[in-house]
Every structure is written in C-alpha cells, then in structure tokens.
Design a protein around this nucleic acid. Structure first.
Lengths: 199, 199
DNA sequence: CAATAAACGGACCGACCGGTCAACTTGCTA
DNA sequence: TAGCAAGTTGACCGGTCGGTCCGTTTATTG
C-alpha cells in the first residue's frame, strides 16, 4: 500500500515543470536528451529531478504513461463508432498526431520500462486488436492482416518522415494513408510471410 | 592526388578485420556501438582502428559505401528488367535483405557523412527515382506516388520489425508486401498531403 | 512564530566515450 | 640480414553521462 501523503505545493508544481520540460527535450533530442538539460530547462537542479523520478527511465515512463492512457481512452470510444474502418484510421491518426508517435516508439523498445507503462502498453495493444478485428469483419481491412501487424506498422509513418529533415510537420499523414491503403482488401496481394505471434 | 602506396600486408588484413567487426557490431548494437568494442572484436587495439579510420564516422561511412554501391549496381541492372513493377519490388527486397536496411538507415541521417558516402547515396536516390518512374508509367505504381516517397518508405519494413524482439529474421518481407500493396494503383485512395520535394 | 519534515540544488562520483600519443614491434627492401 | 618506415598498442586525456549526497532552504502546521 502506497498511502502517499499529498505532495507539498511547490513539489507538485516542480513535478509538472519537470514533466513538461522532459517532454519537450525528449521530443527535440530523442532518448539521448540528458537529465541535466531537462532539469535546467525546468529551471531546477538535477537533484530535484532525481527526487521525483528515481531514474531517467522512470521519468520517460511517466511521460509515456500519460500519452498512452489518453490514446487508450480515445481508442475505447472509437470501438463504438459507426464505421469500423474509419475508426481504425482515426485511431492511427490520433496515435501519430502531435508527435505522440515519437513517444510511442520508445514504448516499443523492449521491457526496460516501468511496470505501469508496460501494463498501459498492453492495454493499448488490446484496443488495437479490437479495432482491427472490427474493421476486418466489416471488410474495411484485408483478411490476412492482424492486430499485431497494425501495432508494428503504427509507428512507421512518423519514423519514415523523421528522415526528411526539411519536411512539413504533418507529412506523416501522406505515409499513413499509403500504408493504410496497403491494409485495405481492395487490390491486396498474398503476403509472403505469416504474421508474428501477438505480443 | 592520392598516390597511395599499397598497404602493408598485415595492415590490409587488419583493415578487413576492422570493417567486418564494425559491420557486426553496428548491426547488433546500432550507432552506439563503441570503437573500443569494435577494435576488441577484431582482436586489435583501439589505436589501430584510428590509424585506419580517422574518426568513427569515417568507419561507418566506409561500411555503408560498400553496401550502397552494391545496391546501386543491382538497381542499375533492374532498370532494364522486363517488368518494371517487379523490378522495383525486387530492388526494395534487395535493399531490405540481409539487414542492409539497417545500414541504409544510418545513411538517411543527415549530412554528417563522408563526401563519398553522400555521393553514393545520391546515386541511389537517382536509381530509385528511375525505377519508380518506370513502374508508374507501366501502371504498376499509383500515379500520385513519387520516387522520394519510395526512398522514405524503403527503410520502414526493417524498422517496423526491429521492435518485435522475437520475430523471425525475414518478417520484414510481410511488411514490405503490405506497404508495396499501398503503392499499387488498385484500390488507391487520394493522399491527404502533397509529396515532399526531391532531396 | 517556531519547529520540523519535506524539498531543493549543485558539487561530486564512477563509468564510459571518442580520440591522441609516444614507446614498441614488424613487414618490406636494398 | 640490417635498417627503417609502416604499423601497432594501451595508457592516457578531456568531456559527458546518470546518479548520489548532504548542507541549505522552505512549506506546512500546532
């Protein structure tokens, strides 16, 4: 039982500052952003950062957890949408939008994450599986594509555009559309390799 | 004029050892592989590595240059193939196969590379553009897709599978097929974003 | 307001990195 | 085979990193 007594007012404020600074710094410089820079950006000392987050990975996990939970909530609502195909596409757009993908991609990197973050990720995987199943049954997605396929492909649009240095910020929409066309049943060719097992 | 006198026999052998060790190490651990580990893997001292390659980036560029040149040669031949659509697909398969993609992805990362490597990359870009143009004129690729699109998407299949830790080594074939289906004219939906300028 | 626990901050630590260098070894050649 | 340039090596350097620690500051509360 973690009967945590509430944070002192300044501590709560600083925690928010740190999370915001870390989100910005990670977005700009990737996983290599240094904790010193993050603390400095928040106008705080490095020691303060480590008082709130025992390790750099914990800080990352805290950020990612928020994003994932928000995405899961949106995905849950999309499960009731009228058009299952449009709902899946909308979910993928939400996931890629505002560089959320950039954080999601951290999530995919193996198990060095907070247990909470891992649980949130698995919740998200379940949501994606449900969205894909619905879309497949509705004929909006080809029969030979699985939820795991979509999970893996989810981060590709942002990854792809990250290499076009002078690209407009929402170029990912173009590649999400191309990949999504590849998921549709119309004009689908047989796949040369079986799908991976669900994670 | 670089009238380089030939390397001493042992030096030439060590150079090959270093290139092989570096290729393995970069493939396993990515760009973060340390020069010390590479030298150790080659059974040599760190100083020897720096005698052959002035900087870590030069070493990387030397590896990448070989791969790119091989790919360019294959791509050049595919320009004469009977079926332009199959030729483009074959080129993408070659590019992704045997983790070549892993090295190509380094290439995409901005201009911190050897001038030679940059030239080789640009040569590859031209080859891809030609392959795509041929395929498009032949109706094997949708009209609204450009060579630059394909260059950006080229690395996606391997990237995508790199996050499925227990995946079979050629799972990328599955996602290359899905993405390639997205490039076909059949069942293509309008793209929501214009293509980026050619690099 | 005084007492106290919570929070803060930055000097400090050990590990690791890319890269240098001078002493040492070795293949080539005359 | 002698001499020497070419090649090798690992200790070493400056810098950065994640993380620790303790003297100091501050919000809270009786």
């Amino acid at each position: 039982m973690t009967t945590a007594r509430p944070l002192r007012a300044d501590a709560a404020r600083n925690r928010r500052l740190l999370l915001a600074a870390a989100a910005d710094e990670f977005a700009e410089r990737g996983l290599d952003a240094s904790v010193a820079d993050i603390a400095c950006r928040a106008g705080l000392g490095k020691g303060t950062l480590f008082r709130h987050f025992a390790t750099k990975d914990d800080l990352l996990a805290a950020i990612v957890l928020d994003r994932i939970d928000a995405l899961n909530a949106a995905g849950g609502q999309l499960l009731d949408a009228a058009d299952p195909g449009a709902a899946l596409l909308e979910f993928l757009i939400l996931a890629a939008d505002q560089q959320q993908q950039r954080d999601l991609s951290f999530l995919q990197e193996a198990g060095e994450l907070n247990a909470d973050a891992i649980r949130a990720r698995e919740r998200m995987f379940r949501v994606v599986h449900k969205l894909v199943d619905r879309a497949r049954k509705h004929g909006a997605v080809r029969a030979d594509v699985t939820g795991t396929d979509v999970i893996l492909l989810m981060c590709a649009p942002n990854y792809v555009t990250s290499y076009a240095s002078d690209a407009p910020p929402d170029l990912w929409r173009r590649y999400l559309a191309i990949i999504f066309d590849g998921l549709r049943p119309e004009g689908a060719h047989p796949l040369p390799h079986p799908p991976p097992a669900a994670p």
